[in-house]
Design a protein around this nucleic acid. Structure first.
Lengths: 196, 196
DNA sequence: ACCTGAACACCGTTCAAGT
DNA sequence: ACCTGAACACCGTTCAAGT
């Protein structure tokens, strides 16, 4: 074989993996295939990833970092009202979900797995820092009826993640994702609002 | 080998599959393993299932039937108020989800897949007949502000399915599932309610 | 330090052959 | 009609050996 030194095999394997995972999910992703993509022997990836799970976890971590950057950008203006920020969060999350459906499913499944790495847990914490700050601020500000920020955060994440699942599943028929998001976020915002 | 005629190999394979799928998910389920469980050769399942996907789809269909029966029972009393019926639906769905997490994930993923069978789609329709009737009744009755039953159903399913995902993911810490369900369903019911 | 090549124990799927 | 056994093309993982 020719290419002894490769530059950065680790990064190249992750690049191929990020593309391949959307084709057939984590189960359909093959280490041997990635090695072929990179032009190295099937045993070469072992040098950089202990096993397939380690490679998938690296993929999850970079996914959480990308998602985190998007959420930070979506919630960068703290002057906006709670409803608008809620909508921005939902849209950003769901956009990421539709563009990276297999990766997001893996991220969601792995981030709290029993055998999750500390690094992985930390990446998850970091990714959701902006929405957590949003909820804390709204609770302190009296924008929402419930003062238990954790409970509110749970209701929000459940709704937004569920919405993503439904949109990805093709269960919204002809409607545009943004319309569906707006409709459900309105229900959520009404439910959370102080006045009733 | 000994056991030529087996009784009902198809049913026995499905029984073993239903147990095995919760151990390691659909990807970790092996046809050869199921054949060993049943004491037949590795090629025998081929007689009853065209391929692995066909076996998984049969599993999904029986899962939808079981879920449908539970939802029917939970919503059997049409005299209850909308909020209470919503809570019953959520609890029943989430109970099924926590008891059959791998199966539910597969059900959710397969029911609207591009290559889904007509039989599979029909099973999905049938399983959710009771909650659909609940929403139609509430919309006609003026229990909810929104008269677009589809939009309401989408908000409900998104919230309840998202809640199931969060509970399964172990993201509720020390709280009891029923407490979390009650909290989020209250938010949802407030959001959907007519008065504001 | 980084990679190769052979080996091992698994898969799903196919197909001639057996009863 | 229902099942077996061998075969094929794949896997992930391990490990001695090469540079």
């Amino acid at each position: 074989m020719t290419p002894y030194h490769h530059g950065d095999l680790r990064a190249e394997l992750l690049r191929h993996a990020a593309r391949r995972i959307e084709e057939a999910g984590p189960a359909g992703l093959s280490l041997r295939e990635l090695a072929r993509d990179a032009g190295v022997s099937h045993a070469a990836p072992r040098q950089h990833f202990r096993d397939k799970q380690a490679l998938l976890d690296a993929l999850v971590i970079s996914g959480l970092e990308r998602l985190g950057r998007r959420l930070d950008r979506a919630l960068r203006d703290p002057g906006e009202g709670f409803d608008e920020r809620l909508t921005r969060f939902a849209r950003a999350y769901i956009r990421f979900a539709t563009q990276n459906r297999e990766l997001l499913a893996l991220m969601f499944a792995r981030k709290d797995a029993p055998d999750a790495t500390d690094e992985l847990r930390a990446a998850n914490e970091a990714a959701f820092a902006a929405p957590r700050a949003m909820v804390d601020h709204a609770a302190a500000n009296g924008d929402i009826a419930d003062t238990d920020a954790d409970r509110v955060a749970m209701a929000i994440l459940a709704t937004v993640h569920g919405l993503a699942a439904i949109i990805i599943g093709g269960m919204i028929g002809d409607r545009s994702p943004d319309t569906v998001v707006a409709g459900t976020v309105n229900v959520l915002a009404r439910g959370l609002s102080r006045a009733h």
